[in-house]
């Protein structure tokens, strides 16, 4: 790995740590949901980075599907948290 890839991995590791801390400690449920959503976005970027690292475009499909479907899952969870308030 060259310097750019190493620094990208380091930054993503830091971001994952921050999101994980918020997910474990977050005082309310919306905090935890937003932290989980942040983690999914970081993961999408990480999957793209792995595609670059392995020099294979096959892994880009995984990132695409992940990015699209985590949106649906998070919207469903957000609807669940909304309750019966209209």
């Amino acid at each position: 790995m060259n310097l750019a890839e190493q620094s990208a991995a380091l930054l993503m590791g830091l971001a994952i740590f921050l999101g994980l801390i918020r997910m474990m400690a977050g005082p309310t449920n919306p905090d935890r949901l937003v932290a989980a959503d942040t983690l999914t976005v970081i993961t999408t970027v990480a999957l793209t980075g792995f595609a670059a690292l392995f020099a294979s475009p096959l892994y880009l499909d995984v990132a695409l599907i992940y990015g699209v479907l985590s949106f649906v899952g998070m919207v469903a969870l957000a609807r669940a948290i909304e309750g019966n308030r209209s």
């Binding site: 997910m23 977050g26 989980a36 993961t43 499909d61 995984v62 985590s70 969870l77």
Partner: peptide, 25 residues
């Protein structure tokens, strides 16, 4: 339980990255 569901989606997220590392797209 809602926090537990969010955490379980994080489990499957990390697992997906592990499968990519193990060359199983």
């Amino acid at each position: 339980l809602l926090a537990a569901v969010a955490a379980s989606s994080v489990v499957s997220l990390a697992l997906s990255v592990l499968f990519v590392i193990l060359r199983a797209p």
